[in-house]
């Protein structure tokens, strides 16, 4: 289905190179360690990642969460960290039809606002932080 190994073009050192295995990127980007607390802040940030325009997270205090993507509660039980990493880096590597934006990609995009050109939405460190946060969102044990 998908080529097993895809290397992201290293654009001015801003996009980490990675290896896709099945539907996952197993190795942390640039070997970085993620921090779940920072990751939650990234997910909630309305200026940058803006995940909540499309997703709901398990927190009743947050208003106006979107319903374009699946709710992220329990996602750490459904997907491995590597699978989450791939979906945040570039979901089209797994499903070309994916609606979700690629957060760590700069190539092959059309008509990008000059202010954002050649920059991924999230840095390698931010991706790792998000992966750490989401991996810890486990389904409640019954």
């Amino acid at each position: 289905m998908l080529a097993l190994t895809l290397l992201a073009a290293p654009v001015a050192g801003q996009v980490a190179s990675f290896t896709v295995t099945g539907d996952a990127i197993e190795a942390p980007l640039d070997g970085l360690q993620g921090d779940p607390v920072r990751g939650e802040a990234v997910v909630r940030n309305r200026e940058t990642a803006n995940c909540l325009i499309c997703h709901a997270i398990p927190d009743t205090a947050e208003r106006f969460m979107g319903e374009i993507g699946p709710p992220l509660a329990g996602v750490g039980s459904r997907l491995s960290p590597g699978q989450i990493r791939l979906r945040v880096v570039d979901p089209t590597l797994w499903n070309p039809q994916a609606i979700m934006p690629a957060y760590h990609r700069t190539e092959g995009l059309v008509r990008v606002d000059p202010r954002y050109r050649d920059h991924p939405v999230l840095s390698a460190q931010e991706v790792e932080d998000v992966v750490a946060y989401l991996s810890a969102l486990e389904a409640p044990r019954r």
Partner: peptide
Amino acid sequence: ETRQGQLNLSCGQCHDDNAGRRLRG
């Protein structure tokens, strides 16, 4: 129909595929 912008979305991915759903508010 062209996916565009840093978020790589076409108009139709929102206005056809997701019409009726909530995008934030």
